[in-house]
């Protein structure tokens, strides 16, 4: 694993030396601005809800549809080229002729993707100190901590799915579509599916709800840090990375 830091630097360089990362970051900044604007307007209304627990973080991130749509676009865009481009251009052969294992390559690509994903969240974090100190709106910091941890592990999972699909093909578009479809299933279909079956008493409704990213994010947003959800995110991430390594290794067998 000693080559991983070098490979991560190389990947981050590839991100930031091209225009793609900056454009995606600008896009996220625009969405964060819209979300924050909406949040400020909501918070400025007199809060007279009857014992309703709706933390500002739910309005700002967890329950924000633009945020999740941006995620579904940005993550496939970030991960599609990680391995698919190396395979298409043939540089993967060069990379693997040097004494670097497939595991190191996949881990480094994934780590770079996760770092880039966290960078995308910076615009969202940027507004909060202004709200806290400038406007003296002393919101609860617990839900922010829970949401930060939850979004990080969630990102680790999503990026690992992207890396896996990128390892499967040499076509970036196919990799992006694969990642998008899985993310769509996890985000939307689990949510809609749960809403549909919940009233019908289906036994697997709870399982669907547990897997629903939107419900997970809502839980984090109100300040509930569910270790089961974190374990699930990390398990999926590890398993997908393992599969990605296996896919890369199978390239030798076919060769």
């Amino acid at each position: 694993m000693r080559h991983v830091p070098t490979l991560v630097r190389r990947e981050l360089g590839a991100y930031f030396l091209g225009p793609m990362a900056w454009l995606i970051l600008l896009g996220f900044q625009a969405i964060a601005w819209l979300n924050f604007w909406d949040l400020v307007e909501v918070l400025a209304r007199p809060q007279v809800g009857l014992s309703q627990l709706s933390d500002p973080m739910v309005t700002y991130i967890s329950g924000s549809m633009p945020f999740w749509i941006a995620m579904m676009v940005a993550i496939p865009a970030l991960t599609m080229r990680l391995l698919a481009e190396e395979k298409r251009s043939g540089t993967i052969e060069t990379l693997l002729t040097v004494p670097i294992s497939e595991t190191e390559v996949v881990t480094a690509k994934w780590a770079a993707g996760v770092i880039m994903y966290l960078v995308l969240l910076i615009p969202y974090a940027l507004y909060l100190p202004f709200l806290y100190y400038q406007a003296e709106f002393h919101f609860d910091l617990g839900p922010i901590a829970a949401l930060s941890i939850g979004l990080t592990t969630m990102g680790m999972m999503f990026i690992s799915i992207g890396v896996f699909f990128s390892a499967l093909t040499r076509n970036q578009i196919v990799a992006a579509i694969g990642t998008f479809v899985v993310m769509f299933l996890m985000l939307m279909l689990t949510f809609l599916g749960y809403r549909y079956v919940a009233g019908r008493g289906a036994v697997w409704a709870e399982a669907l709800k547990f897997c629903s990213i939107l419900y997970q994010a809502y839980g984090f947003g109100v300040g509930q840090l569910d270790l089961r959800v974190l374990a699930m995110h990390l398990s999926v991430a590890i398993f997908m990375l393992y599969l990605a390594v296996k896919v890369l290794q199978s390239r030798e067998d076919r060769g």
């Binding site: 900044q29 924050f36 400025a44 940027l126 709200l131 400038q134 709106f137 002393h138």
Partner: peptide, 23 residues
């Protein structure tokens, strides 16, 4: 439940200043 009790000017600054800085 907290209410953000700042005037509209401050609300606008709150949204615009960090955005411009970040962009």
């Amino acid at each position: 439940a907290l209410t953000l009790s700042v005037n509209p000017g401050m609300r606008a600054r709150l949204v615009i200043v960090p955005t411009i800085m970040s962009v």
